[in-house]
Amino acid sequence: MRKVLTLSAVALMLACAAPAYAQQADSETVEQRNKAIVLDFYEKALNQKDFAAAAPYLGKYIQHNPNAADGPEGLKDFLGFLKQKYPQSHSEIKQVFTDGDYVILHVFALREPGTRGNAIVDIFRLKDGKIEEHWDAVQPIPEKSANTNTMF
């Protein structure tokens, strides 16, 4: 009888753990999908400056940068500005972090070759596979640093 009770207890524990494991696996799948969406969007938008290719990834696209216009049209205008004024600009993603519906990029961005560029943290919130919101923090890379660490 003791073996039956022990096996029943193990079976009950596994049955209770299965939904939690499935939920974790689903979360990882969503995070992987969101990461792939943001990385492809970033390449098409910021590096290729191709709004038409980037637009299918956009949802409402609420812009939290106070210097940038809101919505997909705001992004379209910004990419047009980059294409015209900084055609050689390029952004290199150094790190990617995911947390549920959020994807966070740590980026080295150069507007013009030969300049020091900027360190950028871009934060995207996705909903149903579409980019709904964007925040960023931009920090110019200084000529001299008070420490020997890099910004990346």
Rank of each mutant, 00 (worst) to 15 (best):
M1G: 08
K3L: 15
V4Q: 09
V4E: 06
L5P: 00
L5E: 06
L5G: 01
T6G: 02
T6D: 09
S8N: 12
A9S: 15
V10T: 14
L12I: 13
M13T: 15
L14P: 14
A15Y: 07
C16I: 12
P19C: 01
P19W: 01
Y21C: 02
A25R: 07
D26V: 00
S27W: 00
E28T: 02
T29H: 06
T29G: 01
Q32E: 10
N34T: 07
K35C: 11
A36P: 04
V38H: 10
F41W: 14
F41I: 10
E43H: 15
N47K: 04
Q48M: 12
F51R: 09
L58F: 07
G59E: 11
K60C: 03
Y61R: 08
Q63N: 03
P66R: 09
P66F: 11
P66N: 06
A68H: 06
D70H: 14
G74T: 06
K76C: 01
G80S: 02
F81G: 01
L82I: 11
K85V: 13
Y86M: 05
P87M: 07
S89E: 03
H90K: 12
E92S: 10
K94D: 01
Q95D: 04
V96Y: 04
F97G: 00
T98N: 12
D99T: 05
G100T: 05
V103S: 09
I104P: 00
L105I: 09
R111W: 02
E112L: 08
E112P: 00
G114K: 01
R116H: 11
G117P: 05
V121M: 08
D122K: 10
D122V: 09
D122G: 12
F124T: 05
L126Q: 07
L126M: 09
I131L: 08
H134M: 09
A137I: 13
V138F: 09
Q139S: 12
E143A: 14
E143S: 10
S145R: 15
